[in-house]
Structure formats: structure tokens, C-alpha cells
């Protein structure tokens, strides 16, 4: 399925609508992060990943793998999984409800296609992605492993264990992506716990570091392509992806307020009016 940039942008707008409708419908969840990462999710699932949406296998042998370490972005991930064919679109309406496969944070227990490990307790995804990348090497499988994590999440020490390992063991079929939106639950990251010079840190750990604006589709595609080319050169690859948390909804942008809060009726109406229905709602 080859999509033009304009089509990808339309999908991203619809994904944002899905996110808002899911979180509003459940009256719980995390809208800010997935709104900010909509371009990335769409670029990966509709253009970049070599994957088998309709034929999900846990092993993922012979396809690229994606891990969402910051599992609270689940609404955005579920939207692209459904819209790229992993499961029925209508199932998005069950987000966070009882007996749903769409758990608040991603899980494997209910058997939702597309999910290969539970995430939500932060800091674990990059380690899991390292393991999956090692398995690909053992299996002589040339496909790549992607892992998205939050910037606040990098406060968890396990990430830096994984950073050391991936560089030290030359896990060069691994692409990490940091959602560098500068916001976390308690406030701006630089106030809660400053990350310092992230580019210098990942470089010093031995990673090949790329940067991009995650809310410009053209740039996302270009840098993801560069990242793919950078693989196989004895270094893991990290993309620092600047985004606006809450991107696409004016009053949700530039603040941590919408990290983990559902909009009320009036707020929802105001927000959804900024995002046209491009593909048809679920």
C-alpha cells in the first residue's frame, strides 16, 4: 500500500480524531502524547514498517517490529493498528472498557493483534526491543526493530542500561525514537527532572543520533528513511523527535495539562471541531 504524503497527513488527522473520541468515550486516558505522535504512528504503519497487518504473529519473524515503551500512548497506537488492518475499526469504541482487548495500557493477555509485550510501567521497552533485535540477528532476519519512548520516561534508569548494552553489543538493527515533547505529568520535563543534553548523552553512549520535527510528515518520512540507512553499521540508531504534546488541538498544545486527562463535553466539541473527519470515524 503506497500512500502519498497528503494521504498520510489525512490519516494522521483521522488518528487524532480517533484518539480524542476514544479518550472522550472512555472518559479516561492520555490524549496529549498520541496527538503529538500521530505523524510518527502513521508514517511507521502506513509507509515505513515492513509488516503483515492482517496476519499477525507474535514471533514477528520476517517483518519489522514496533514497540511502544511509553504505553500510555495506547490510543494512538490502537488507532493506527486498526486503520492499518490489525483488527476491526469498530473495536476502537471499546477502549478502556470492561472485557475489551484495548486495555488502558497495551497488553498481550487479551490477544490484541499488533501487541507483542505489555508496556505502561515505564523504562522497559528499549530492553525488550534490544532482545527482539538480538533474536532477529540470531534468526538471520534482516528486518528492523523500532521502539518509541517518552522523554520523561528517560528518567527511568533501565533505559540507560539498555543504551549501554545496545551500543556495547552493536545492536545495529534497532531504531529508538524519543518523543521529545518536554512535558510530563507534573510539569515541564526541565522542571520535574532535567534531561540535560540528550543528543550528547545518546552520542556518548555510542548511538548514532538523528533529530527531527515529529509533527512535519515530510521530515518524519525523510528521517525515518535516513535511520533505516544508518542501520547495519555497528551502532544502534536514536531519533530525537521534537513534538508538541497535544498537537492538532490548539488548547491542548504547549502544556502538560492534557497528558492524562479526558476532555469534558464542551472541551471535546471544541477539540474535535479542529480535526476534520478525513477517513470516516469508527
Amino acid at each position: 500500500m503506497q500512500h502519498h504524503i497528503e494521504q498520510l497527513k489525512e490519516i494522521a488527522t483521522q488518528v487524532r480524531r480517533d484518539v480524542l473520541r476514544m479518550v472522550y468515550g472512555a472518559q479516561s486516558g492520555h490524549p496529549g502524547g498520541p496527538l503529538g505522535c500521530a505523524e510518527l504512528f502513521v508514517a511507521l504503519y502506513f509507509k515505513v514498517l515492513h509488516h503483515r497487518a492482517g496476519d499477525f504473529s507474535m514471533d514477528g519473524v520476517g517483518e519489522d517490529l514496533f514497540f511502544l515503551s511509553n504505553g500510555h500512548l495506547s490510543a494512538g497506537w490502537y488507532s493506527v493498528l486498526a486503520r492499518s488492518g490489525y483488527f476491526d475499526l469498530g473495536e476502537l469504541s471499546t477502549f478502556r472498557a470492561i472485557n475489551s482487548r484495548l486495555q488502558g495500557h497495551p497488553a498481550t493477555k487479551e490477544g490484541l493483534p499488533g501487541i507483542r509485550v505489555a508496556s505502561g510501567s515505564l523504562g522497559q521497552g528499549l530492553s525488550v526491543a534490544c532482545g527482539a533485535a538480538l533474536a532477529k540477528k540470531l534468526n538471520d532476519d534482516k528486518h528492523l526493530v523500532y521502539c518509541l519512548m517518552g522523554d520523561g520516561e528517560l528518567q527511568e534508569g533501565q533505559n540507560w542500561e539498555a543504551a549501554m548494552f545496545a551500543a556495547g553489543r552493536q545492536v545495529d538493527n534497532l531504531i529508538g525514537i524519543v518523543d521529545y515533547n518536554g512535558q510530563q505529568i507534573d510539569g515541564p520535563v526541565k522542571e520535574v527532572m532535567p534531561l540535560g543534553d540528550l543528543k550528547a548523552k545518546w552520542s556518548a553512549f555510542g548511538w548514532d543520533v538523528l533529530e527531527m520535527n515529529g509533527n512535519i510528515m515530510e521530515e518524519v518520512l525523510e528521517v525515518l528513511s535516513k535511520a533505516r540507512e544508518a542501520c547495519g553499521k555497528k551502532k544502534p540508531v536514536m531519533i530525537l523527535m521534537k513534538t508538541d504534546m497535544g498537537h492538532g488541538v490548539d488548547f491542548m498544545m504547549g502544556t502538560h495539562e492534557w497528558h492524562g486527562k479526558a476532555p469534558k463535553e464542551e472541551e471535546f466539541a471544541k477539540a474535535i471541531s479542529q480535526l476534520p473527519e478525513t477517513l470516516g470515524d469508527y
Binding site: 514471533d59 509485550v117 532482545g131 533501565q158 542500561e161
Partner: peptide, 26 residues
């Protein structure tokens, strides 16, 4: 040697890597 991974003193990472390795059937 190709099937052995020395992870250093980083047990949390080891558990995550182990979980990831199962995804490729290991």
C-alpha cells in the same frame, strides 16, 4: 558464544532483553 549474552551488572535490562528474545522464538 553466539547464544550467550553477557549484559553486565544490569539485571533490569537483562529481564527486558530476555522478554524480547522470546518474541523471536528464543
Amino acid at each position: 558464544p553466539a547464544r550467550f549474552f553477557q549484559v553486565g551488572i544490569a539485571e533490569a535490562n537483562m529481564m527486558g532483553i530476555a522478554a524480547g528474545l522470546t518474541i523471536g522464538g528464543k
